[in-house]
Amino acid sequence: MSWLIAGLFCMVAALIAGMVLMYILPLDFSERSPVQPLIFSHKLHAGANGIPCLYCHHHADKSPVAGIPALADCRACHLYISPEAPEIKKLMGYWDRQEPIAWARVNNLPDHAYFPHMMHIRAKIDCSICHGQVAAMERISRTASLKMGWCLDCHRQHKASIDCWTCHI
């Protein structure tokens, strides 16, 4: 009988421990720096060549979404710039098949959070505050936690609205 009570107690304890563990452990299993279908170097484009972020992500200052450049935009430059490089050939292959590139998403917010890029750019928040030093990254990786507390810290610091409805509708 006693082993039954002990077993039951152990089980409850294990369950509680599991729950606590689940609560404190990061439950985000998405990769911080996933392998992309095409080796695209931000270090080369934004770093070495000094192309401004908004040149390619040109919706960021007028839309909630920053926008990934269309395949035609990449192609427009690379018809002339190093067209013989292996990755560019791969890019042209996508174009020939008329197939969009399915990039792996690195910085992702849950569906119930609304993040308008244009408001942050208008407030002169530098891209690197959320996206990290992209100009130094060979492969993009997530540097910020993107958790609500992290958002709020910055909002408080900049005296931006901390009304719930600012982000959650």
């Binding site: 990769e31 839309s63 269309a70 990039w103 792996a104």
Partner: peptide, 22 residues
């Protein structure tokens, strides 16, 4: 198992005056 979502951009950018997300 939940991995990273996919980001699928346009093949050809939309017409002038159309901004994605708006």
């Amino acid at each position: 198992q939940s991995g990273n979502e996919k980001l699928i951009p346009y093949l050809v950018p939309p017409d002038e005056g159309v901004t994605p997300g708006r």
